[in-house]
Design a protein around this nucleic acid. Sequence first.
DNA 1: ACTGGATCCTGACTGC
DNA 2: TGCAGTCAGGATCCAG
Length: 272
Amino acid sequence: MPELPEVEITRRGIAPFLESAEVRRLAVRNRNLRWPIPPLLEDRVTGRTIRFVDRRGKYLLFGMDGGGMLLHLGMSGSLRVLSRPVPPPGPHDHFDLETGDGHTMRFRDPRRFGCLLWQPGAIHHHPLLKELGVEPLSAEFTGDMLWAGGRFRRTAIKNILMNARVVVGVGNIYASEALFDAGIHPARTGNRISRRRYQALASAVRATLQQAIEQGGTTLRDFTGATGNPGYFHRSLRVYGREGEPCERCRAPVRRVVTGQRATFYCPGCQR
DNA sequence: ACTGGATCCTGACTGC
DNA sequence: TGCAGTCAGGATCCAG
Protein backbone atom coordinates (compact mmCIF):
# COMPACT_ATOMS: atom_id res chain seq x y z
CA MET A 1 0.00 0.00 0.00
CA PRO A 2 2.16 2.76 1.21
CA GLU A 3 4.98 4.73 -0.27
CA LEU A 4 6.72 7.58 1.50
CA PRO A 5 3.77 10.02 1.42
CA GLU A 6 1.37 7.47 2.87
CA VAL A 7 3.82 6.52 5.60
CA GLU A 8 4.40 10.18 6.40
CA ILE A 9 0.65 10.83 6.54
CA THR A 10 0.32 7.87 8.86
CA ARG A 11 3.14 9.17 11.05
CA ARG A 12 1.52 12.58 11.33
CA GLY A 13 -1.78 10.93 12.18
CA ILE A 14 -0.49 8.78 15.01
CA ALA A 15 2.22 11.03 16.45
CA PRO A 16 -0.13 13.31 18.46
CA PHE A 17 -1.55 10.28 20.26
CA LEU A 18 1.69 8.38 20.78
CA GLU A 19 4.44 10.88 21.44
CA SER A 20 4.96 11.21 25.18
CA ALA A 21 2.43 8.44 25.76
CA GLU A 22 3.06 5.50 28.02
CA VAL A 23 2.54 2.02 26.62
CA ARG A 24 -0.06 0.38 28.81
CA ARG A 25 -0.36 -2.80 26.81
CA LEU A 26 0.76 -4.39 23.57
CA ALA A 27 -1.70 -7.06 22.49
CA VAL A 28 -0.31 -9.23 19.69
CA ARG A 29 -2.74 -11.58 18.00
CA ASN A 30 -0.57 -12.79 15.13
CA ARG A 31 3.23 -12.66 15.25
CA ASN A 32 3.71 -14.04 11.73
CA LEU A 33 4.58 -10.98 9.77
CA ARG A 34 7.44 -10.79 7.33
CA TRP A 35 9.65 -11.49 10.30
CA PRO A 36 8.04 -12.73 13.49
CA ILE A 37 7.21 -10.10 16.09
CA PRO A 38 9.83 -10.82 18.80
CA PRO A 39 8.37 -13.00 21.56
CA LEU A 40 9.48 -10.67 24.33
CA LEU A 41 8.39 -7.43 22.70
CA GLU A 42 5.35 -7.02 24.95
CA ASP A 43 7.53 -7.17 28.06
CA ARG A 44 10.06 -4.80 26.57
CA VAL A 45 7.63 -2.02 25.73
CA THR A 46 4.99 -2.23 28.46
CA GLY A 47 5.34 0.67 30.85
CA ARG A 48 7.77 2.56 28.64
CA THR A 49 7.19 6.03 27.32
CA ILE A 50 7.30 6.70 23.60
CA ARG A 51 9.61 9.68 23.20
CA PHE A 52 9.18 10.23 19.47
CA VAL A 53 7.58 8.82 16.34
CA ASP A 54 9.98 9.22 13.47
CA ARG A 55 10.15 8.09 9.87
CA ARG A 56 13.10 6.82 7.86
CA GLY A 57 12.17 5.90 4.30
CA LYS A 58 9.05 3.78 4.65
CA TYR A 59 9.90 2.70 8.19
CA LEU A 60 8.20 4.14 11.24
CA LEU A 61 10.38 4.42 14.33
CA PHE A 62 9.06 4.56 17.87
CA GLY A 63 11.81 5.86 20.11
CA MET A 64 11.81 4.86 23.77
CA ASP A 65 14.33 4.98 26.57
CA GLY A 66 16.85 2.22 26.03
CA GLY A 67 15.45 1.02 22.72
CA GLY A 68 12.68 1.38 20.22
CA MET A 69 10.27 -0.27 17.82
CA LEU A 70 10.63 -0.32 14.08
CA LEU A 71 7.51 -0.82 11.99
CA HIS A 72 7.02 -1.31 8.28
CA LEU A 73 3.62 -1.33 6.60
CA GLY A 74 4.70 -3.56 3.73
CA MET A 75 2.27 -3.62 0.81
CA SER A 76 -1.02 -3.77 2.65
CA GLY A 77 -0.37 -2.51 6.18
CA SER A 78 -2.16 0.37 7.86
CA LEU A 79 -2.38 1.97 11.30
CA ARG A 80 -5.45 3.46 12.88
CA VAL A 81 -5.84 5.27 16.17
CA LEU A 82 -9.02 4.22 17.95
CA SER A 83 -10.77 5.65 20.97
CA ARG A 84 -12.97 3.80 23.39
CA PRO A 85 -15.09 1.87 22.86
CA VAL A 86 -12.58 -0.02 20.73
CA PRO A 87 -14.30 -2.13 18.06
CA PRO A 88 -13.47 -5.84 17.99
CA PRO A 89 -10.44 -6.69 15.86
CA GLY A 90 -10.89 -8.07 12.36
CA PRO A 91 -9.05 -11.12 11.04
CA HIS A 92 -6.06 -9.08 9.83
CA ASP A 93 -5.71 -6.79 12.82
CA HIS A 94 -2.48 -8.28 14.10
CA PHE A 95 -1.74 -6.10 17.10
CA ASP A 96 -3.07 -3.28 19.27
CA LEU A 97 -0.90 -0.89 21.20
CA GLU A 98 -2.78 0.79 24.04
CA THR A 99 -1.57 4.00 25.57
CA GLY A 100 -1.94 5.17 29.15
CA ASP A 101 -4.60 7.69 28.23
CA GLY A 102 -6.86 5.18 26.55
CA HIS A 103 -6.02 5.34 22.87
CA THR A 104 -5.36 2.25 20.80
CA MET A 105 -3.11 2.08 17.77
CA ARG A 106 -4.26 -0.86 15.66
CA PHE A 107 -2.15 -2.49 12.95
CA ARG A 108 -3.90 -4.20 10.06
CA ASP A 109 -2.01 -6.03 7.33
CA PRO A 110 -3.82 -8.64 5.21
CA ARG A 111 -0.76 -9.71 3.24
CA ARG A 112 1.56 -9.67 6.26
CA PHE A 113 4.53 -8.19 4.41
CA GLY A 114 4.92 -5.67 7.20
CA CYS A 115 7.04 -6.05 10.31
CA LEU A 116 7.32 -4.93 13.92
CA LEU A 117 10.76 -5.27 15.46
CA TRP A 118 12.67 -4.20 18.53
CA GLN A 119 16.03 -2.48 18.56
CA PRO A 120 17.95 -2.02 21.80
CA GLY A 121 19.68 1.33 22.23
CA ALA A 122 19.15 3.92 19.53
CA ILE A 123 16.36 2.90 17.14
CA HIS A 124 18.11 4.64 14.27
CA HIS A 125 20.85 2.01 14.51
CA HIS A 126 18.65 -0.86 13.43
CA PRO A 127 20.41 -2.98 10.77
CA LEU A 128 17.50 -2.57 8.33
CA LEU A 129 18.17 1.17 8.28
CA LYS A 130 21.89 0.79 7.81
CA GLU A 131 22.00 0.54 4.03
CA LEU A 132 19.26 3.04 3.29
CA GLY A 133 19.92 5.85 0.86
CA VAL A 134 19.08 9.50 1.09
CA GLU A 135 15.73 10.98 2.13
CA PRO A 136 14.14 12.49 -0.99
CA LEU A 137 12.72 15.47 0.90
CA SER A 138 16.02 16.38 2.52
CA ALA A 139 18.56 18.87 1.26
CA GLU A 140 20.99 16.02 0.59
CA PHE A 141 18.82 14.76 -2.23
CA THR A 142 19.97 16.54 -5.36
CA GLY A 143 20.20 15.90 -9.07
CA ASP A 144 23.95 15.64 -8.80
CA MET A 145 23.64 13.02 -6.13
CA LEU A 146 21.28 10.99 -8.31
CA TRP A 147 23.56 11.49 -11.28
CA ALA A 148 26.54 10.28 -9.30
CA GLY A 149 24.61 7.17 -8.28
CA GLY A 150 23.12 6.35 -11.67
CA ARG A 151 25.44 7.59 -14.37
CA PHE A 152 27.39 4.33 -14.72
CA ARG A 153 24.52 1.94 -14.23
CA ARG A 154 22.89 -0.09 -16.93
CA THR A 155 19.66 -0.51 -15.01
CA ALA A 156 16.41 1.15 -16.01
CA ILE A 157 16.11 4.53 -14.32
CA LYS A 158 12.82 3.47 -12.78
CA ASN A 159 14.58 0.67 -10.92
CA ILE A 160 17.29 3.05 -9.76
CA LEU A 161 14.62 5.39 -8.40
CA MET A 162 12.94 2.53 -6.57
CA ASN A 163 16.20 1.25 -5.12
CA ALA A 164 16.17 2.15 -1.43
CA ARG A 165 19.96 2.11 -1.30
CA VAL A 166 19.96 5.09 -3.61
CA VAL A 167 16.93 7.03 -2.44
CA VAL A 168 14.27 5.88 0.00
CA GLY A 169 10.52 6.05 -0.17
CA VAL A 170 9.94 6.16 -3.93
CA GLY A 171 7.72 3.22 -4.80
CA ASN A 172 5.94 2.05 -7.89
CA ILE A 173 3.37 4.82 -8.18
CA TYR A 174 5.57 7.82 -7.55
CA ALA A 175 8.43 6.50 -9.65
CA SER A 176 6.12 6.43 -12.68
CA GLU A 177 4.73 9.85 -11.85
CA ALA A 178 8.10 11.52 -11.31
CA LEU A 179 9.49 10.10 -14.54
CA PHE A 180 6.49 11.44 -16.42
CA ASP A 181 7.03 14.82 -14.83
CA ALA A 182 10.68 14.82 -15.85
CA GLY A 183 9.94 13.51 -19.37
CA ILE A 184 12.24 10.51 -18.97
CA HIS A 185 11.37 7.09 -20.35
CA PRO A 186 11.20 4.63 -17.45
CA ALA A 187 13.26 2.00 -19.27
CA ARG A 188 16.08 4.40 -20.16
CA THR A 189 19.21 3.17 -18.45
CA GLY A 190 20.98 5.29 -15.87
CA ASN A 191 24.12 5.64 -17.96
CA ARG A 192 22.21 7.29 -20.80
CA ILE A 193 20.74 10.20 -18.92
CA SER A 194 22.39 13.60 -18.85
CA ARG A 195 23.32 15.41 -15.69
CA ARG A 196 20.78 18.09 -16.51
CA ARG A 197 18.00 15.54 -16.82
CA TYR A 198 18.96 13.99 -13.50
CA GLN A 199 18.45 17.40 -11.99
CA ALA A 200 15.00 17.64 -13.53
CA LEU A 201 14.25 14.19 -12.19
CA ALA A 202 15.30 15.02 -8.64
CA SER A 203 13.06 18.08 -8.71
CA ALA A 204 10.21 15.97 -10.05
CA VAL A 205 10.61 13.35 -7.33
CA ARG A 206 10.61 16.00 -4.62
CA ALA A 207 7.63 17.86 -6.05
CA THR A 208 5.61 14.68 -6.59
CA LEU A 209 6.15 13.43 -3.05
CA GLN A 210 5.52 16.80 -1.49
CA GLN A 211 2.31 17.28 -3.40
CA ALA A 212 1.14 13.80 -2.46
CA ILE A 213 1.73 14.52 1.21
CA GLU A 214 -0.18 17.77 0.94
CA GLN A 215 -3.13 15.88 -0.52
CA GLY A 216 -3.12 13.23 2.15
CA GLY A 217 -1.52 10.48 0.11
CA THR A 218 -2.89 8.22 -2.59
CA THR A 219 -5.95 6.12 -1.88
CA LEU A 220 -6.12 3.38 -4.50
CA ARG A 221 -7.84 0.57 -2.68
CA ASP A 222 -8.35 1.24 0.97
CA PHE A 223 -5.60 3.52 2.18
CA THR A 224 -6.73 5.89 4.88
CA GLY A 225 -4.73 8.01 7.24
CA ALA A 226 -4.53 7.05 10.90
CA THR A 227 -7.64 9.05 11.63
CA GLY A 228 -9.60 7.37 8.87
CA ASN A 229 -9.63 10.02 6.17
CA PRO A 230 -8.62 8.99 2.65
CA GLY A 231 -5.93 10.64 0.54
CA TYR A 232 -6.75 12.53 -2.58
CA PHE A 233 -3.57 12.32 -4.60
CA HIS A 234 -4.99 9.59 -6.84
CA ARG A 235 -6.88 12.37 -8.57
CA SER A 236 -3.56 13.91 -9.45
CA LEU A 237 -2.00 10.77 -10.90
CA ARG A 238 -1.13 11.51 -14.50
CA VAL A 239 0.05 8.14 -15.79
CA TYR A 240 -0.24 5.54 -13.04
CA GLY A 241 -3.28 3.34 -13.65
CA ARG A 242 -4.21 5.29 -16.80
CA GLU A 243 -3.35 2.81 -19.53
CA GLY A 244 -4.96 3.81 -22.81
CA GLU A 245 -6.07 7.23 -21.61
CA PRO A 246 -4.72 10.26 -23.49
CA CYS A 247 -1.65 11.92 -22.01
CA GLU A 248 -2.64 15.31 -20.61
CA ARG A 249 0.30 16.94 -22.37
CA CYS A 250 0.39 15.38 -25.83
CA ARG A 251 -2.78 13.24 -26.01
CA ALA A 252 -0.84 10.07 -26.89
CA PRO A 253 -2.35 7.04 -25.15
CA VAL A 254 -0.60 6.18 -21.90
CA ARG A 255 1.20 2.87 -22.10
CA ARG A 256 1.63 0.12 -19.53
CA VAL A 257 4.64 -2.18 -19.53
CA VAL A 258 6.15 -4.50 -16.96
CA THR A 259 9.69 -3.82 -15.77
CA GLY A 260 11.28 -5.59 -12.86
CA GLN A 261 7.99 -7.45 -12.35
CA ARG A 262 6.21 -4.20 -11.65
CA ALA A 263 3.66 -2.37 -13.75
CA THR A 264 5.08 0.80 -15.24
CA PHE A 265 3.01 3.54 -16.83
CA TYR A 266 4.39 6.19 -19.15
CA CYS A 267 3.58 8.41 -22.09
CA PRO A 268 5.36 7.27 -25.26
CA GLY A 269 4.99 10.80 -26.66
CA CYS A 270 6.56 12.88 -23.91
CA GLN A 271 8.96 10.47 -22.25
CA ARG A 272 12.24 9.74 -23.97
C1' DA B 1 29.67 -5.70 -8.45
C1' DC B 2 25.24 -5.81 -10.66
C1' DT B 3 21.08 -7.72 -12.27
C1' DG B 4 16.93 -10.19 -12.80
C1' DG B 5 13.88 -13.40 -10.74
C1' DA B 6 11.59 -15.85 -7.03
C1' DT B 7 9.46 -15.22 -2.82
C1' DC B 8 6.61 -14.18 1.38
C1' DC B 9 0.70 -13.63 1.83
C1' DT B 10 -4.30 -12.43 1.11
C1' DG B 11 -7.99 -9.99 -1.26
C1' DA B 12 -10.10 -7.78 -5.17
C1' DC B 13 -11.16 -7.99 -9.64
C1' DT B 14 -11.81 -10.04 -14.50
C1' DG B 15 -13.33 -13.23 -17.72
C1' DC B 16 -15.31 -17.49 -18.88
C1' DT C 1 -23.09 -17.79 -9.09
C1' DG C 2 -18.76 -20.04 -9.21
C1' DC C 3 -14.26 -20.73 -10.19
C1' DA C 4 -9.61 -20.01 -12.09
C1' DG C 5 -6.37 -16.78 -13.23
C1' DT C 6 -4.23 -12.23 -12.66
C1' DC C 7 -2.75 -8.43 -10.25
C1' DA C 8 -1.56 -5.36 -6.21
C1' DG C 9 1.34 0.46 -3.19
C1' DG C 10 7.61 -3.69 -0.72
C1' DA C 11 11.99 -5.36 -0.24
C1' DT C 12 15.09 -9.26 0.78
C1' DC C 13 17.58 -13.02 -0.80
C1' DC C 14 19.86 -15.85 -4.14
C1' DA C 15 21.80 -17.52 -8.46
C1' DG C 16 24.14 -16.30 -12.46
